[in-house]
Amino acid sequence: MVNSLETNTPIRVGLVGTGYVAKLRAEILQQDDRAKLVAVVGSTPEKTAEFAQKYDVEAIASIKDLLNLDIDLVIVATINSEHGAVCRQALQQGKHVVVEYPLSLDVYEAEELINLASRQNKLLHVEHIELLGGLHQALKENLAAIGNPFYARYSTLNHQSPAPQRWTYNKTLFGFPLSGAVSRLHRLTDLFGTVATISCQNRYWGMDGEFFKACLCTTQLQFTSGLIAEVVYGKGETIWLEERKFTVDGEKGGLSFDKEDGKLINSEGTKPIEIGTRRGLFAKDTAMVLEHLINGTQVYVSSAASLYALKVADAARRSAQTGQTVAL
């Protein structure tokens, strides 16, 4: 059980990162009287200074210096490959931690960090806002209507040309596609439980050192329930047909979510399903974290569930490397 913080003063927050998500977090924190963003550290002095000026916080030169400040909570919103090391330093310094997924690109390090947080009696919350979104909630609410589900397919394909030469297109910094984008698997494990076996194929195009022009990762999972699921994740210059679709087949009907269009199909016909907005999810996540730290209420996702999704992603990585089906 994480100790609750004092409520007579705002929770003092330090932020690691200056990108899109870091800016969202900063804006949200500035609108909540329960927290105060006091400092930020970024990848370069220029970005850090610009961010600090915009949000009226202190610019810090290093993570070590940030952790030496009088802060209660560290939010880690930097590149994937840095998550694990920053979380470890923050926990060792006795800080509560919020980190954008994935917790680490190394599944063994992720498990060590969860154990460290437990020993330190500190919160280690891995953001998984996909579980709060309208699509996922609509899936959960309508699963019973299709009877026993036996097949699911989740595809996210994104054409980008030219491919940006930034960390999301860097094998080392982003990680294996389904580890860096572990939310694709977490949706499935949250809905359908434990995985028995996994088979994965992964391909890159246009490699320039660690950077790539495109990637395509296709994975088949067999759950212990017997359900078979396919996950398709691709992005870049050679991904021409864009798609964001999630379908589930059950013995009494099917569910189809194509971008913002949801449908329930069964013997009675087709019924539209309203999908809630994706806006405001980081605000919900942040509010739940603050409520947990102040009043001890539960957050919406456990470290164990996040770790399990990461273990499935790591099994997919091993399958892609070896060409073999991996049993979990």
Rank of each mutant, 00 (worst) to 15 (best):
C87M: 01
Y154M: 08
A90S: 04
V107L: 02
G180Y: 13
A152G: 12
M207Q: 08
T194I: 13
Y108N: 02
L103N: 05
T172K: 05
G193H: 08
T219L: 12
E109G: 13
G147C: 13
V195N: 03
W205V: 03
L178A: 07
K171H: 12
E112D: 15
T172V: 13
V99C: 05
T168S: 01
G175S: 15
E230A: 10
L191V: 05
A181S: 05
A229F: 00
L124H: 00
R203E: 02
A181V: 05
T156R: 03
L91A: 01
G147A: 14
S199V: 04
A152N: 15
L191K: 11
D208H: 03
T218W: 00
L191I: 09
T219G: 02
Q165K: 10
T194Y: 06
V86N: 07
K140M: 11
R166L: 11
P177A: 02
Q201W: 08
L131S: 04
T219I: 03
L216K: 02
S183W: 12
N202T: 07
E112R: 08
A152S: 07
S199P: 14
V86G: 05
T156I: 14
F174H: 02
N170L: 15
T224M: 10
V182Q: 09
A214N: 09
L105E: 03
Q93T: 07
T197W: 09
R166S: 12
L173M: 12
Q92C: 15
K95E: 15
S225Y: 05
L123C: 11
F174V: 05
I129Q: 08
T194Q: 09
L124W: 06
Y101A: 04
C215P: 02
G147L: 11
W167V: 06
C217A: 08
A229L: 01
R184F: 02
K122V: 14
G133L: 15
K140S: 10
G147T: 06
S225M: 08
F223N: 04
K95Y: 10
Q137S: 14
H83L: 11
T172A: 05
V107A: 06
L132D: 12
Q137K: 10
E109V: 10
A117T: 10
N121S: 13
S104E: 11
